[in-house]
């Protein structure tokens, strides 16, 4: 019996056949294809979680440093210092947004991160999962499985879609990451496999068409705040799905749609630094704009 799958439909069929969660099917698939022992695999999962945790806190614990390009640094601390009466997103989401900013800062200053699925979108999955883990009654094992669930979705986007901004825009990076996190959150909070895929489908649909337009071609602005919106999108999609709200577009279709939309974006909006935010007058008009950013 093989646990390998090639699309969401087959993944859900395996879940139903074996009465398993998405993470459990993905775990069996990985064990089967890698030949790794269960304990070795969980050691690798734990290593990822440790690096993720440290990158979500690094910019809060340590003195913030400027990014390599000098465009960001210190934003997660600013978020943490926001007075409580202005936290309109609520405690958990606020914490997750703060963490996502920290990962982006860590990444942009050559700290160690876990690409999930990419370095540019590395804040979404750890911030979403770790903030909810802290807040909800979720066990460490459920957190580990949550990360594996996110991996299952990331695998589908890598295999059948795209996770490269240069190929299909930011929707392929932050969009995929947001879908991965949405599905993982749904599972961690007791959702069914169908609710996980539905949450992922909603998350992607809400970021469909998001362009990749990094200022000066660097993974800094607007990438950092896009990680924050990826988190907010994941929370939103998970909550909608857990409430029973469904997208009529199945996840496999949504992944195809994302690629089609991505490929119809002009090249200037696919990580070339030649369109969108990268070409804003305040950014392009030389020093004034840059100083404003610094």
């Amino acid at each position: 019996m093989s646990y390998d799958f090639t699309n969401a439909k087959k993944l859900l069929a395996l879940c139903s056949e074996h009465n398993m969660k998405i993470s459990e099917v993905m775990l069996e698939r990985e064990l089967e294809l890698s030949g790794m022992s269960r304990s070795a695999l969980f050691e690798m999962v734990d290593r990822c979680l440790r690096v993720m945790e440290s990158s979500t806190n690094r910019s809060l614990d340590e003195e913030p440093v400027k990014s390599m390009g000098g465009l960001i640094g210190g934003e997660s601390r600013q978020m943490r210092n926001l007075s409580e009466d202005k936290v309109i997103c609520g405690t958990v989401l606020h914490k997750a947004l703060t963490m996502a900013l920290s990962v982006a800062e860590t990444n942009a200053s050559m700290g160690v991160i876990v690409a999930a699925p990419t370095a540019g979108s590395a804040g979404v999955v750890p911030a979403s999962l770790l903030a909810v883990y802290e807040w909800a009654d979720v066990s460490l094992d459920a957190l580990r499985l949550g990360l594996i669930n996110a991996g299952a979705l990331g695998y589908l986007f890598t295999k059948n879609g795209s996770v490269a901004g240069a190929d299909a825009g930011c929707q392929a990076e932050v969009g995929s990451a947001s879908a991965m996190a949405a599905s993982a959150l749904a599972e961690m909070l007791g959702g069914t496999p169908e609710q996980c895929c539905n949450a992922a489908s909603i998350a992607v649909s809400n970021l469909l068409g998001l362009v990749c337009d990094p200022i000066r071609g660097l993974v800094e602005v607007p990438c950092q705040t896009r990680n924050a919106i990826g988190v907010a999108g994941a929370f939103t999609a998970a909550e909608l799905s857990l409430a029973g709200i469904t997208s009529p577009v199945l996840l496999d279709e949504m992944i195809d749609i994302m690629v089609d939309v991505g490929h119809s974006l002009p090249e200037s909006l696919r990580e070339t630094g030649k369109g969108g935010c990268a070409c804003a007058p305040s950014v392009c008009s030389g020093l004034r704009g840059i100083q404003h950013l610094l």
Partner: peptide, 13 residues
């Protein structure tokens, strides 16, 4: 692999 998607662990950016 799972770790192609959740990974690599790397120095940014």
């Amino acid at each position: 692999s799972l770790f192609d998607v959740i990974g690599p662990v790397m120095v940014g950016p």
